[in-house]
Structure formats: structure tokens, C-alpha cells
Amino acid sequence: MKKLINKPEDVVTDELNGIVAAHSDLVRVHFDPNFIARADAPVKGKVGVISGGGSGHEPMHGGFVGMGMLDAACPGAVFTSPTPDQMLEATKAVNGGAGVLHIVKNYTGDIMNFEMAADLARAEGIEVEAVVTNDDVAVKDSLYTAGRRGVGVTVLAEKMCGAAAEQKRSLKEVADVCRKVNGQGRSMGMALTSCTVPHAGKPTFDLPEDEMEIGVGIHGEPGRKRMKLQTAAEITEMLAGPILDDLPFKSGDSVLAFVNGMGGTPLIELYVVYNELAKICAGRGVKIARNLIGSYITSLEMAGCSITLVKMDDDLLRLWDAPVKTPGLRWGV
């Protein structure tokens, strides 16, 4: 294992201290239990928006704390969901009296830990709503399984919910934005390499030089199928096809297109993928109204990408365009 770390067990703490050193103007970091909150939290009369999950997906979620996006983020150990005491304390810290929205990615661990935290917060008199993101079309959806994973849509939902909360919309209205973005968003990812969890010390899976995994999530886990490496055009079609067919996105739809790097893929390749995606969307009459290209929801140093499309309407477009000022996403300010 070759990594820029001190000790595997200190990675998350060292990172949080780095965030303190770098971004004290925007956020403050609370230790034990760990969470990152807006420097000016709680904002009176505003719905608090929090999220959380395992570490290793940076900049998500901690990098999205700030004006116009999250009020707090709870980082767990690498690839391990955070514990209820973290979400409880974060919820209390950002509650400005208008309630708190929990944006939860659909993973068994995240669901159960957030559920326990929401119960505890409600017992303390704080109004909490939780919305679960589950946009990964690579996973077969079924009532009898854990269902689809929450992936790329989460970043976009955090941005648009944060903007809705800044407008002082109610808890239910902010939660509705989250449900809408999730309901109208679909994603799929692929990996060119695995990644190494610091405390595991070796790659989570072996992927030969000339092979790739299609349908991976964001935890270095194997995907739905393994195949010979192909061109960016073919790979983009393999990801965009199932996404477009699933919702389905139709001719005339206006979308936000998000091409995300998994952590080890350079921007040059993401633009190659975006070029293919733009052609595919144009071919189907789907209009890309906005785009986001870069590594925002990562899987440590995994090489690969994911594509997310969200069907937009005027309200969502305004929420997307609204100012945001966080370490990881910043415009309009």
C-alpha cells in the first residue's frame, strides 16, 4: 500500500484537522463525536440540512458544508457509516428551530444509524425528516432486498436542498425537493481499478490490466459484471443507456448531467466521457440544461467514473443556480 498517510487509524482525524486548518472561515469541526458544521450554525429559522456516510468519498459530504448546501456532515470511518451519536449531535448543532433534514444514502448501515439518530433527536423535541437517496440503476430494485444504492444524486440533492433551505422553505418543502431530485435522478458507475482501504492495506478486489467492472458503487466493491476494457464511447453507452431507459428520460426532457470521477481518473478523461454523453443525449432528444464534471463523490483512489442524470424543471434549475459557498462547490458568491 502506497498512501500519503501517517497511520491508517489516524486518517479521518488527520483529515478533519486539515479541514480545520484550511477552512475555518467556512466550517467548524467537532470531535468526539465527529461532525463538520457550518461556521455560523445554527441559522435561525432555516431548516438544517445534514448528511453523512463513510469517509473516503471526499469532497462528499464534508466538503459540501457551507452556505447554500449542507449545515453539517458526519464522517464515519473509511467506508463505514457514522454512528447515531454523531448525527444526533450534528442535528442539535444545526437546528435553527425549523427542523432538520437528514439526507441518507441507501445503505443498510447508514439507514439504521440515521434511524436511531432521528429517534433520539425527536425524543429531544427536534423535528426531523429523513429522505433516502437510491439512484443506482446497476442494482436491481426489489422489495425483498436492500434496494438501490444512493450515489451521485446525493451530491446534487444536497446542493438543491441547501438552496431551498436558504430560501427558508419549510422542512416538508425541503424534503420534497430531495424526494423530487432523487425520484427524477438515476446513476451508474464503472471502475478501471479497485481501491485500497487504509486499514485493509490491499486492494478490495483484483482487476487485471485489460478488464473493467461495470455497475460498481462507491466502496471499491465489485460491480455487476466484469468485462474486457472498451473505448470511452462504448463505456459511456453502457452507463448512459440503462440510466436513460430506467426513468425513462424522454425526448424533450431537460436534464442536469453529472460526470463524476471516482478519485483516480483525471479530468481529461471525464471530458472525453462527457463528450460521448452529450452525443448520446442529443441523439435521444434529451437536452442537457446544466452540467457538473469532476470528482465529487469518490471511492478513494479508484479509477473510473459514474454518470448521473436528473430531470430538471424551472424550480430545480433555480435551486441549482443559486449561490453556494463550500470548500468543494462554490459559485454565485
Binding site: 457509516s81 454512528t83 443498510t108 444509524n113
Partner: peptide, 12 residues
């Protein structure tokens, strides 16, 4: 365990 394990294992 709930406050230290995380993941699915912690709550379970």
C-alpha cells in the same frame, strides 16, 4: 457498540 462500530454491524 452502537456509538463505536458504525456500519450495519453497529446497530445490529
Amino acid at each position: 457498540l452502537v456509538s463505536t462500530v458504525g456500519g450495519a454491524g453497529g446497530p445490529l
